[in-house]
Nucleic acid binder design. Structure first.
Lengths: 235, 235
DNA sequence: CGTTTGCTTGACAGGACTCAACGGATGTGG
DNA sequence: CCACATCCGTTGAGTCCTGTCAAGCAAACG
C-alpha cells in the first residue's frame, strides 16, 4: 500500500460517469476532493479488513477489487466484486457497524479515500447524493437476494455457469472473448460457493462441452447462449 | 385483502419507535399520513408480488411478513422476515426496479401504504429520513452478506440451528420459551435453504439432543447455548 | 365427514466435499 | 541465472451429506 503524494481530482476521473457522484454538477464536484487521500495497492493487498472500524469510504479510480467474508472454518466467500467507479466500504460506514468483510485487490488498484465527516457534509450540501447512495445500496440488496436464491437452489454446475456470465457483465471481455479479470481457481470457487476441486472439474466439463476454452488463467467464453442455458439465468 | 376506511395515524402507531420514521419530530409526523392508505391482510395473502412495479412502500403496523423469491424450479427462498414497524417493498422502489420478491403475511397483518410521491416529498422535507432509509438498506445488506456466507459454507444442521436463533431475535419468545411465529415446516425449510424432509429430520434430531422441544407447530427453545454451538454463530 | 393439506419416516441415489498425490508454474534469494 | 521453495492446478478415490421419491398418518378445513 502506498499513500500517493498528489490526489486525483474527481473532475478528471474517467470513472466518474459511472460512480455515485455522477449526478453532482461539474462545478460542485471539486467539493468531493476536500479531505480526500489517494492510495495505491498492489494485487493481493487489502483496502480494509473485516472487524475494523470504518472511517470513510473508498472510491475505486482504477483496478478491480473483491469483497469477501471469512466463514467459521476460515473459508472465504466473495460477496461482491467492484471495479473503477465503484464504492467500497460504504455499507458498514453508513449502517454504523464494523466492517463485516475484507476488500482485497485483484489488480494494481488506486482508490480515493473520502473521510466520514466530508461525506456527511456532502450529503447535506448535495441532497441528490444520499439518494444515489440509497439507490446503490438498494440495488446491491437486490443482487444479494439473487445470490442467496442461487446458492440455496442451484447446483454447482449451474452456479459456475452463472458466475462466468456475471464476471462477463462486471468486467467485460477482451478482444478475443476472454474474461477480463485475473482470478485463481480458488477465487473462482469462492465466488461460486464451492470447493476448488469441484470448480476445476466443472470448468473442464464446460471446456469439453465447447462452452468455454481454458488457456492458463484465461477463460474464453465460446458459447454464451449455452452458458445461459446451463446456468438457467433468468431475464 | 381489505382496504380500511379509516387510516391509522403515525403519531398513534405503537411501532413507530422502531420504524424508519422514529427520528421525525412528533409535530411533523402527521406529514407521513398524507396520501396514506391502510390495508388489512389475512394469513397467506400477499402484499406485493415478484415482477410487479412498486408504487410506494408499506410499513407494517401489526403482523408478520415473509419476503421470498421464487427460483427457477418454482422453489421459494425466504430472503427476509419483517414485523411491526418494519418497512417492506422499499428496496425495489428506491433502486427503481420491479419487485424481485413477493411479500406474504404469516399472520393477520395491517400495513400503511405510503405512495412514492409522498415518500419523495418526505425525503425533501426531512433530510434525516433518507439517512435512516440508507442506514436500513445498508444494515440489511450486511445481513444478506451473512446469509450468503452461511448458505455457502454451513451444513443444513448448522443453518437450522442458526435459523432458530434468528427467529428468536426477530420475533422473540413466548413466556414458555417457544418461538413467537407460526411457520410451517415447508416455510422453515425455505428459510434454511433446504428440503422439507431434511428440515424435519434435523428438528427431530435437535429434540432428541434436548436443544428444543416440538409441540405441534410450536418450537420451544430449551438450550440456547447448545444451539449457538451447533450453529457456530459468531459474536 | 370427506377431502385436502401438512407432517413424518424410510429407502435410495447421486452430487459435492475431503483427502491425497503429483506435475507445473511462479517467484525468490543467493 | 540457477536452485529451491512455495503456490497453484489437476486428477483420482472414497465417503457422506442431502435431496428426491414414495407412502402412511395426522391435522385442518369447509
Amino acid at each position: 500500500m502506498k499513500k500517493l503524494a498528489d490526489t486525483f481530482h474527481c473532475a478528471d476521473c474517467k470513472a466518474r460517469h459511472r460512480s455515485v457522484f455522477n449526478q453532482i454538477p461539474l462545478d460542485a464536484v471539486d467539493e468531493v476532493d476536500v479531505g480526500k487521500t489517494c492510495f495505491q495497492f498492489k494485487r493481493g493487498e487489502s483496502i480494509f479488513y473485516e472487524g475494523h472500524t470504518p472511517q470513510g469510504v473508498y472510491c475505486i479510480e482504477t483496478g478491480k477489487v473483491k469483497i469477501y467474508r471469512t466463514g467459521p472454518d476460515g473459508k472465504d466467500q466473495i460477496v461482491r466484486l467492484a471495479r473503477e467507479g465503484d464504492m467500497v466500504g460504504y455499507r458498514s460506514l453508513l449502517s454504523g457497524e464494523k466492517y463485516s468483510s475484507t476488500a482485497s485487490c485483484l489488480d494494481e488498484t488506486t482508490v480515493c479515500f473520502v473521510p466520514k465527516t466530508q461525506l456527511m457534509s456532502l450529503f447535506a450540501q448535495q441532497s441528490c447524493l444520499s439518494m444515489r447512495f440509497m439507490q446503490q445500496a438498494c440495488h446491491e440488496l437486490g443482487e444479494a437476494g439473487k445470490l442467496i436464491t442461487n446458492l440455496a437452489q442451484k447446483s454447482v454446475r449451474e452456479r459456475m455457469a452463472e458466475m462466468l456470465l456475471m464476471l462477463k457483465e462486471t468486467f467485460g471481455l477482451t478482444e478475443d472473448n476472454a474474461l477480463d479479470v485475473r482470478l485463481s481457481r480458488e477465487e473462482l470457487s469462492t465466488l461460486a460457493g464451492t470447493a476448488t476441486e469441484s470448480c476445476i472439474r466443472v470448468l473442464s466439463d464446460f471446456q469439453q462441452e465447447g462452452m468455454i476454452r481454458l488457456d492458463g488463467k484465461r477463460i474464453v467464453l465460446q458459447s454464451i447462449p449455452q452458458l445461459v442455458r446451463t446456468g438457467r439465468v433468468e431475464e
